[in-house]
Design a protein around this nucleic acid. Sequence first.
DNA 1: CGCGAGCTTGACGTTGTTCAACTAGAGTGG
DNA 2: CCACTCTAGTTGAACAACGTCAAGCTCGCG
Lengths: 233, 233
Amino acid sequence: MQAEDEPIKTSCTVAHQHCKCFDFLTDEQRALIEKNRVTVEFKKGEIIAKQGSFTSYVLMVCEGLAKVYFEDKDDTLILRIAAPGSLIGLTSLTKSSNVFHYSASAYVDTTVKLIDINTFRQLIGENGLFAAAIIDILGENSIQKNERFYCLTHRQSYGKLADLLLCLAGNIFRTQKFVLPLTRKELAELAGMSTESVIRTMKKFQDDKLITSNGKTIEIINPEGLLKICELG
Amino acid sequence: MQAEDEPIKTSCTVAHQHCKCFDFLTDEQRALIEKNRVTVEFKKGEIIAKQGSFTSYVLMVCEGLAKVYFEDKDDTLILRIAAPGSLIGLTSLTKSSNVFHYSASAYVDTTVKLIDINTFRQLIGENGLFAAAIIDILGENSIQKNERFYCLTHRQSYGKLADLLLCLAGNIFRTQKFVLPLTRKELAELAGMSTESVIRTMKKFQDDKLITSNGKTIEIINPEGLLKICELG
DNA sequence: CGCGAGCTTGACGTTGTTCAACTAGAGTGG
DNA sequence: CCACTCTAGTTGAACAACGTCAAGCTCGCG
C-alpha cells in the first residue's frame, strides 16, 4: 500500500516520471510550444521513433507506455520504459547530429506529443530555468540508467527479475497488484534474460510466496523478500 | 595510424573528449569561473569524488586519467573513463540533491579543476549557449553510456575485451601501441569480466595475431580483426 | 473445432566464474 | 647481497548459472 508517497527503492529503476520543465515557461513561451507541437496516437506495437532516422522533434509521452531501446544488428537493449510525463529524444538536441540515438515503440496504445526541436532549442537559449530543468531531467535519466546498468550487469537472474517486478509495481503501475500488458518475452527483454529463465524464476518466486501470478495478473505479496533478493544479487 | 582523424568506431566507447562548453562564455563569465575554481592534484589511486557525499563543485579533468564508477555494496561498475577534457559531476547540478551519484578515482596522477557548482548553475541560467553546450555534453555522455551498456550486456568476453582494447587505443591513448597504466584486474573491471578471463582472452588474441602484449605494453596489430570480433559478439 | 501465439517444462551444452596453485618481479630489511 | 614477502600475472580444473533447443500445453479467436 505504499504506493504514492514512499515507493520501495529499487536499484534497476526502469522508468521515471517527470516533466516539471514546462512549469518554468512564461505564458508566451508555453503558447509557442503549443503552436509548435502535434499530438499523435500510436497503436500497440507501433514504432514511435526509429534509431538513426532524422528527427525534428522531441517526444513527450502523454498516455500509455513506451519502450525506449537501443538497437544493434539483430539484438536490442531496453534502455527504459517511458511512462506518461517522460521525454524522449533529448539526446538529439545536439546541433551536430539530429538523429534519434535510440528507438521507441508502444507497449500499449500510446499518445505522444511531438514538440518541434527548434522551438525546444530556442527556449533553452532564452529561458535559463527551462534549460536548467532540462539539464535536471538529463541528469536524472543518467542516474537512473546507471542503476539499471548496474543491475543488468552485476546481478543474476533472481535479482534482475525481482528488481524489475518491484519497479513495475512501484514506478509504473503504482500498485502491488497489476495486469501486465507485456508478454513473458517482453519481460525477459526488460530483465535482460531469456524467456525461459523468466518463467522459471517467476515460478520460484511463486513457490517462495513472494508473488502470485495468474496469467497476466501479478501481485507482489512479499516486497521485502523481493528486495532482499535484489540486494543479495 | 588512423589516430586523430578517423578512429575506428567502437561501440563500447569508454571515454569521451570534449569541453567546448567554455568557448561560449563571455570574457566576464570566464573570469567568473576562473575566480571560482581551484586546481587539485590527485595521486594515482586516490579518490577524486565519492558517491553519496555532498558536493559543491563540478570537476574537470585537466591531465591524467580518472575512473568514474558506480558503487553498490561491495561491487562496482565502471561507467566511463574520464580523460582530459571530461567533466565529472554534471548529474549533481540538480537543485534537489547535490550529492555525487557516482565515484571517481585516479588511474594515474591526475590534475582536476573544481568549479563552484553555483557559479556553474548561474552561468547555465544566464547564458543559453552555455546551457545548450552542457545539454550537448549530457546527451553525448548518455549516448556513449548506451553503447557501453549494450556492449557489456550483449557481448561475450571476446567481444567485450576487443571493444575495450580498440577503445583504449582509439580514444584514450590515440595510438595502436601503448603502455597500459592499468592492471589486468582493472582491465577486467572495465570489460566487466574476471581477471582470469581477461588473461585467457588476451592470450587468445595474441595467438590469433590480433595484438601483441608484453607486460604492460600492448600493440594492436589487426584492428579490423578485433572489430570483427566486436561485431560478432 | 482447429489453428497459432504465447507459455511452460525438461534436457543439454556453453560460457565464464571461482578456487587453488604456481611463477615472476619489485621492494624491503637483515 | 641474499632471503623474504607481497603483489600481479598466469594456468588448470571444477562448477554453476543460464541460454538454447525441442517438445508439449493452453487459451483465445476465427
